[in-house]
């Protein structure tokens, strides 16, 4: 019973950690630049969840005020993450633009092949 309570209380944290660690793994282990950007996206979305989940109050409603409700979830993380998502897609676009330019300059988007091409000089 105690174990079950612990699992329910921390399941969201563990999933967040799993997402974060897999993002980290993709960024470190994979040489393909688009895959790396997807991994960065995973890492980023795990941080969104990390911010949002402590703000949730069991039994609360979304923070839109109305006389019928009295318990609201915390609005502050929502504001921070809302702007972070839009900024995230803008920076993702910047990264993709860099990938396109790298592909035009080197003819590849694999890190290993770019390094091999550099060493041949």
């Amino acid at each position: 019973m105690d174990l079950l309570q612990t699992i329910v209380a921390h399941y969201n944290h563990w999933i967040i950690i799993f997402l974060m660690v897999s993002g980290l793994y993709i960024v470190v282990a994979r040489g393909n630049m688009i895959k790396k950007l997807v991994g960065l996206g995973l890492f980023q979305t795990s941080v969104y969840l990390l911010y949002l989940s402590p703000g949730k109050i069991l039994g609360g409603t979304p923070p839109i005020l109305s006389p019928q409700f009295s318990v609201y979830s915390n609005p502050l993380p929502h504001v921070l993450i809302l702007t972070a998502i839009v900024v995230g897609v803008a920076t993702l676009a910047l990264g993709l633009a860099l990938v396109v330019r790298i592909n035009e300059a080197f003819g590849t988007i694999e890190e290993d092949e770019i390094f091999a091409g550099e060493e041949d000089e």
Binding site: V86, A90, A93, A97, V100
Partner: peptide, 16 residues
């Protein structure tokens, strides 16, 4: 700003 930026980014990717 947001809609302009998103459409401008899309135009430049596709125009490439």
């Amino acid at each position: 700003t947001v809609s302009g930026t998103m459409v401008a980014i899309f135009y430049s990717f596709v125009g490439r």
